[in-house]
């Protein structure tokens, strides 16, 4: 049996991982809810953010620069992709949307593999993130505490944007009924562009923040993408609170199961997902019944 400090330490890991999942999944969920497109390239966008961190930290050693560059690069990529490609697929059947975003994801992963090679690369911790925090009865890496803090600030910013601004009002209404938003005089296409770009940016920022926790490798986004799907199903599609709570739940299940037997971690999240779906078919916070 694990000791109490081991258990607490792993529970903290669950919050750190869960908050990152929440950040990635909230973008994915809102894109799905508002645009009706399931973005299979979302994991690859997270990976691109991590590689931006790898390059920027290697070149300048500045985490702030990596964060700014990762955010901007993915914002620009999201903007270009929505305008240049995704918007032509809103009226197409879901299988076309899946094929196009899946293809995009593969292209991103292969491009990175071509440029940086197939092997994993280490990303150093920022100078201010090195060290250990003493919680009294257990020790914990400082950077992981900072990850939780940074993601909490970002999620709060997301919340304010969604619930306290005009564009947020249009997004929440559009998730329910984009046609009616349009009939009330607001062009939802512009909102779609904002949502896709910001969703890509959030995935990129999550990648930058995650990079020093682990090593970067071209296909690192795949497990995150799959876990984010589970997060959305548990939380309820199109729901921001659902993505946050679902993220923490999945992060905790993955971390705590690993403590007992890592082989069961993936199975455990599907088991919980199934349980949630039996009790609440639309997820914990879901109200949408999309056909």
């Amino acid at each position: 049996m694990p000791t109490l400090p081991q258990f607490l330490s792993q529970a903290f890991n669950g919050i750190a991982l869960g908050s990152l999942l929440a950040l990635i999944a909230s973008g994915l969920s809102i894109i799905l809810g508002a645009l009706g497109v399931l973005n299979f390239a979302h994991g690859a966008m997270f990976m691109l953010g991590a590689y931006v961190a790898f390059v920027a930290l290697g070149a300048w050693g500045s985490f702030g620069a990596a964060l700014a560059l990762g955010a901007l690069a993915l914002l620009a990529l999201g903007f270009a992709l929505e305008r240049g490609l995704i918007r032509f697929y809103y009226r197409r059947p879901p299988e076309d949307q899946i094929l196009v975003t899946f293809g995009l994801g593969i292209m991103m992963v292969e491009a990175v593999r071509y440029i940086f090679g197939p092997l994993s690369q280490r990303v150093p911790l920022p100078g201010w993130g090195q060290g250990i925090v003493n919680f009294g009865f257990f020790l914990y890496p400082l950077y992981r505490v900072q990850v939780i803090g940074m993601v909490a600030v970002l999620l709060l910013a997301f919340y304010v944007l969604l619930y306290r601004t005009r564009i947020g009002l249009v997004v929440r209404a559009g998730i329910e009924d984009a046609t009616m938003v349009q009939l009330l005089g607001t062009n939802v296409q512009r909102m779609f562009l904002v949502v896709f770009s910001l969703g890509a940016m959030a995935a990129g920022i999550a990648g930058v923040i995650y990079a020093p926790l682990s090593s970067v490798i071209p296909n690192m986004g795949e497990p995150f993408l799959v876990e984010c799907f589970v997060v959305i199903v548990i939380g309820g599609l199109g729901s921001f609170p659902g993505a946050v709570v679902g993220g923490i739940v999945v992060g905790e299940i993955l971390s705590l199961t690993t403590l007992f037997n890592p082989a069961y971690a993936q199975a455990a999240i599907y088991a919980v997902m199934t349980l949630v779906l039996i009790v609440r078919p639309r997820g914990l916070f879901g109200t949408l019944g999309r056909a």
Binding site: R166, R172, E176, L183, L184, G185
Partner: peptide, 30 residues
Amino acid sequence: AQRGLQLVPEERRIFGGLSVTENLELAALS
């Protein structure tokens, strides 16, 4: 709609997750 031809649809299509005030604010936006 911006030109002033406004439909009130048969199904009403109220935004269920928005408050009454938010429904009105959204309509007023444009």
